[in-house]
């Protein structure tokens, strides 16, 4: 399945981001094997050099481990998984706060609206599946 990418942000960072999202939402499990660079490139419709660069960054961040002549695997370290999840939560909340603040909405009102909409949205996406 081809993913859509934003053509103004570096693709390798977008690929890393997709990996992190899947780690956070449980689609990817600790220690799970990941596609080879070539497989990833054709799955996503991206240049193999870009796939390579994304893996390199994830190796540097200790999210992916590659042994010699072995398929790459996601880290088995659960702490890393919860760290990634935490990172994404913070990012989402920060974005929310930024928008809400720029609109001058008080915290209580934003919180109330957040709880209400969260439930409505949750139901809508459940019925989508």
């Amino acid at each position: 399945m081809k993913q859509t990418f934003n053509s103004r942000d570096p693709l390798y960072l977008q690929v890393v981001r997709q990996f992190k999202e899947k780690m956070a939402n449980g689609q990817y499990k600790p220690g799970q094997e990941v596609p080879s660079r070539r497989e990833l490139a054709s799955q996503l419709g991206i240049n193999p050099n870009t796939a390579q660069r994304a893996y390199k960054l994830m190796e540097e961040e200790d999210l992916v481990h590659t042994g010699k002549n072995m398929p790459s695997k996601l880290t088995g370290d659960l702490k890393k998984f919860s760290f990634v999840r935490q990172e994404l939560i913070q990012e989402a909340v920060d974005q929310f706060i930024e928008v809400v603040k720029s609109l001058g909405i008080p915290l209580e009102e934003a919180q109330e609206e957040l709880s209400r909409r969260y439930q409505v949205n949750g139901k809508a996406s459940e019925s989508d599946d």
Binding site: S7, R8, D9, P10, L11, Y12, L13, T50, R53
Partner: peptide
């Protein structure tokens, strides 16, 4: 292309 996106935030079409 990746360098252009990273340093200037521009797509090729831009």
């Amino acid at each position: 292309t990746e360098e252009m996106r990273e340093t200037e935030g521009k797509s090729v079409v831009d």
